[in-house]
Amino acid sequence: MSTTIHDPAGPLAEGAVQLVPAAPALVGGSIGVLDNGKPNARLLLTRAAEGLAARIGGEVVRVTGKSGRSGGAANNAATACESQVLESLSKEVRIVLTGSAD
Protein backbone atom coordinates (compact mmCIF):
# COMPACT_ATOMS: atom_id res chain seq x y z
CA MET A 1 0.00 0.00 0.00
CA SER A 2 1.41 3.39 -0.91
CA THR A 3 1.59 6.38 1.40
CA THR A 4 1.64 10.08 0.61
CA ILE A 5 4.24 12.12 2.45
CA HIS A 6 5.18 15.77 2.46
CA ASP A 7 8.39 17.18 1.02
CA PRO A 8 10.59 18.35 3.94
CA ALA A 9 12.43 21.04 1.97
CA GLY A 10 9.42 23.16 1.13
CA PRO A 11 9.36 25.94 -1.45
CA LEU A 12 12.06 28.45 -2.20
CA ALA A 13 11.34 31.95 -1.04
CA GLU A 14 10.32 34.52 -3.59
CA GLY A 15 13.43 36.18 -4.93
CA ALA A 16 15.77 33.46 -3.67
CA VAL A 17 19.08 33.92 -5.45
CA GLN A 18 20.59 31.12 -7.49
CA LEU A 19 24.07 31.01 -9.02
CA VAL A 20 24.28 32.47 -12.48
CA PRO A 21 25.57 30.20 -15.27
CA ALA A 22 29.30 30.29 -15.86
CA ALA A 23 30.45 32.75 -18.50
CA PRO A 24 31.30 30.95 -21.78
CA ALA A 25 34.58 32.81 -22.19
CA LEU A 26 36.59 35.49 -20.45
CA VAL A 27 38.19 37.91 -22.86
CA GLY A 28 39.44 41.27 -21.71
CA GLY A 29 37.62 43.51 -19.32
CA SER A 30 38.05 44.99 -15.90
CA ILE A 31 38.68 42.77 -12.89
CA GLY A 32 37.95 43.48 -9.24
CA VAL A 33 38.98 41.78 -6.04
CA LEU A 34 36.57 41.52 -3.14
CA ASP A 35 38.55 40.45 -0.08
CA ASN A 36 36.22 38.20 1.92
CA GLY A 37 38.20 38.61 5.12
CA LYS A 38 39.91 35.25 5.34
CA PRO A 39 43.63 35.28 6.21
CA ASN A 40 45.72 36.31 3.22
CA ALA A 41 42.66 36.43 0.95
CA ARG A 42 43.62 39.83 -0.43
CA LEU A 43 47.11 38.65 -1.31
CA LEU A 44 45.92 35.40 -2.87
CA LEU A 45 43.02 36.91 -4.79
CA THR A 46 45.02 39.87 -6.05
CA ARG A 47 47.76 37.58 -7.36
CA ALA A 48 45.12 35.39 -9.00
CA ALA A 49 43.44 38.45 -10.52
CA GLU A 50 46.74 39.69 -11.89
CA GLY A 51 47.39 36.27 -13.40
CA LEU A 52 43.94 36.21 -14.93
CA ALA A 53 44.35 39.71 -16.30
CA ALA A 54 47.59 38.69 -18.01
CA ARG A 55 45.90 35.65 -19.58
CA ILE A 56 42.77 37.33 -20.90
CA GLY A 57 44.09 40.79 -21.65
CA GLY A 58 42.20 42.42 -18.81
CA GLU A 59 43.10 44.79 -16.01
CA VAL A 60 42.77 44.72 -12.24
CA VAL A 61 41.04 48.01 -11.48
CA ARG A 62 39.78 47.64 -7.91
CA VAL A 63 40.74 45.76 -4.73
CA THR A 64 38.41 46.22 -1.77
CA GLY A 65 37.18 44.75 1.48
CA LYS A 66 33.52 44.08 2.21
CA SER A 67 32.99 47.34 4.04
CA GLY A 68 35.18 49.48 1.84
CA ARG A 69 37.13 50.37 5.02
CA SER A 70 40.24 48.73 6.41
CA GLY A 71 40.24 46.48 9.48
CA GLY A 72 37.54 45.84 12.06
CA ALA A 73 34.65 43.43 12.34
CA ALA A 74 32.92 44.77 9.20
CA ASN A 75 35.48 43.00 7.03
CA ASN A 76 35.33 39.73 8.95
CA ALA A 77 34.73 36.66 6.81
CA ALA A 78 31.48 35.97 8.66
CA THR A 79 29.81 39.25 7.82
CA ALA A 80 27.92 40.16 4.67
CA CYS A 81 29.36 42.56 2.11
CA GLU A 82 27.90 46.04 2.37
CA SER A 83 25.45 46.71 -0.43
CA GLN A 84 27.13 49.92 -1.59
CA VAL A 85 30.36 47.98 -2.12
CA LEU A 86 28.53 45.43 -4.26
CA GLU A 87 26.78 48.17 -6.20
CA SER A 88 29.96 50.06 -6.94
CA LEU A 89 31.79 46.88 -7.92
CA SER A 90 29.00 45.93 -10.29
CA LYS A 91 29.40 49.28 -12.03
CA GLU A 92 33.19 49.36 -12.11
CA VAL A 93 34.23 45.86 -13.06
CA ARG A 94 33.10 42.96 -15.21
CA ILE A 95 34.68 40.15 -13.21
CA VAL A 96 35.04 39.87 -9.42
CA LEU A 97 37.30 37.40 -7.65
CA THR A 98 36.25 36.71 -4.09
CA GLY A 99 35.98 34.05 -1.46
CA SER A 100 39.15 32.28 -0.45
CA ALA A 101 38.45 29.75 2.30
CA ASP A 102 40.28 28.43 5.36
Binding site: H6, D7, P8, A9, G10, L12, A13, G15, A16, V17
Partner: peptide, 22 residues
Protein backbone atom coordinates in the same frame (compact mmCIF):
# COMPACT_ATOMS: atom_id res chain seq x y z
CA UNK B 1 6.08 32.01 6.31
CA UNK B 2 7.87 31.89 9.67
CA UNK B 3 11.28 32.76 8.22
CA UNK B 4 13.38 32.62 5.09
CA UNK B 5 16.46 30.54 5.73
CA UNK B 6 19.84 30.80 3.97
CA UNK B 7 21.86 29.58 2.21
CA UNK B 8 19.15 27.82 0.15
CA UNK B 9 16.70 30.66 0.58
CA UNK B 10 14.10 28.17 1.68
CA UNK B 11 10.74 29.46 2.77
CA UNK B 12 10.11 28.08 6.26
CA UNK B 13 6.37 27.88 5.94
CA UNK B 14 4.46 26.54 8.90
CA UNK B 15 3.81 23.43 6.80
CA UNK B 16 7.48 22.85 6.00
CA UNK B 17 8.41 23.28 9.65
CA UNK B 18 5.62 20.93 10.70
CA UNK B 19 6.84 18.29 8.23
CA UNK B 20 10.28 18.37 9.82
CA UNK B 21 8.80 18.32 13.32
CA UNK B 22 6.90 15.15 12.40
Amino acid sequence: VLAVLPPRGGSATRRAVAVNAV
